[in-house]
Amino acid sequence: MRKGSIPENLNSVAERIVTACRSCDRRADSVTLLAVSKTRPAEDLRVAYDAGQRHFGENYLQEALDKQEALADCDIIWHFIGPLQSNKTRDVAVHFHWMHTVERLKIARRLSEQRPTGMPPLNVCLQVNIDEEDSKSGVSVEKLPELAASVAALPNLALRGLMAIPAPRGVAEDQRTPFIRLAGLLEDLKAQLPDQPLDTLSMGMSGDMEAAIFSGSTIVRIGTDIFGARK
Rank of each mutant, 00 (worst) to 15 (best):
S23D: 15
I180E: 15
F227H: 04
L105E: 03
F56K: 10
D195A: 15
R221F: 09
S112G: 01
A158E: 13
S12H: 14
M99P: 06
L185P: 02
D75Q: 14
A158Y: 04
R181D: 08
N156Q: 06
F179K: 03
K106P: 00
W78N: 04
G216M: 04
A211F: 09
V171R: 14
A35F: 01
L154M: 00
S140F: 06
P120M: 10
E113W: 02
R16E: 07
I180C: 14
A20Y: 00
V94P: 04
H79F: 04
I219V: 15
E142W: 08
L157K: 09
V31Y: 04
D131K: 13
D225H: 04
A28W: 07
F56S: 05
D208N: 14
Q68K: 03
L154E: 00
V151C: 13
M209Q: 09
L185C: 05
E8D: 02
S5L: 00
E210S: 10
N129M: 02
G228P: 11
A48Q: 06
G4C: 00
L157V: 06
P121C: 01
I180Q: 15
K231V: 11
S5N: 03
D199T: 15
P194L: 02
C24R: 10
M99S: 13
F179T: 07
A149D: 11
A172M: 06
T218K: 11
I180T: 14
R46E: 13
S112K: 00
A191M: 13
S23I: 06
P178G: 11
I77M: 12
P155D: 03
D73I: 13
Y60A: 12
G204F: 05
A48V: 09
A72E: 12
